[in-house]
């Protein structure tokens, strides 16, 4: 970036001072160069973001988690128009996936929104439990998950995963510290 700016300044200065140089008006030429370099540099330092690279869309699409990010972004747009509990908990789940399985504060906020709209949203409740578990509160997590297990229909799709997590939490809880 610095090189590009320097080249541009030099080229501009060279074209501008040529007649002065030929007519031996050295002081004017130097003054013009100084103005270009100082004015341009100072303004750029005040306004520019020299370290920030370009982000062309075609390149970003190739990033491994871009498809998921894009889906999450679309969901956010949709939720702005038409908020729903299921939508917010789906969004939270995507955020968890993007964070490699960790319930980040942003994801927690999405689940909180979902639960605010519908206290029985199962997915949001599951992740609310997971957040507690990840923060080292297995007892509280177990309480949330057990209630969820009790309220779920016996053929609910999430039961196997939920039971696995409950087992895991119980083991952590019983492990001596």
């Amino acid at each position: 970036m610095i090189i590009a700016c320097a080249v541009l300044t030099l080229a501009t200065a060279a074209v501008l001072i040529r007649p002065f140089w030929c007519a031996r008006g050295v002081s004017a030429a130097v003054a013009i160069c100084a103005m270009l370099a100082c004015g341009g540099g100072a303004l750029y330092l005040a306004l520019g973001r020299p370290g920030l690279p370009d982000a062309p869309f075609a390149e970003r699409v190739r990033a491994p988690d871009f498809a998921l990010k894009r889906e999450a972004w679309r969901l956010i747009k949709q939720l702005e128009r038409d908020p729903s509990a299921a939508g917010f908990s789906a969004l939270g789940e995507m955020m968890v996936e993007l964070a490699g399985g960790r319930v980040t504060p942003e994801a927690g906020e999405a689940f909180a929104r979902a639960l605010e709209m519908d206290g029985n949203e199962p997915r949001a409740r599951f992740y609310a439990g997971l957040a507690l578990y990840q923060r080292g509160k297995p007892a509280a997590a177990l309480a949330v998950w057990r209630t969820l297990e009790k309220n779920s229909k016996p053929d609910a799709t999430w039961l196997p995963l939920l039971r696995k997590k409950i087992d895991e939490a119980e083991r952590t809880e019983n492990r001596p510290r």
Binding site: A4, L16, G39, L43, L47, G48, P50
Partner: peptide, 17 residues
């Protein structure tokens, strides 16, 4: 790079003006 060059060129244009 392109974005920042575009901005720098604009700043230089101001000085030239």
């Amino acid at each position: 790079m392109i974005a920042e060059t575009g901005r720098y060129a604009l700043i230089l244009a101001l000085v030239v003006a």
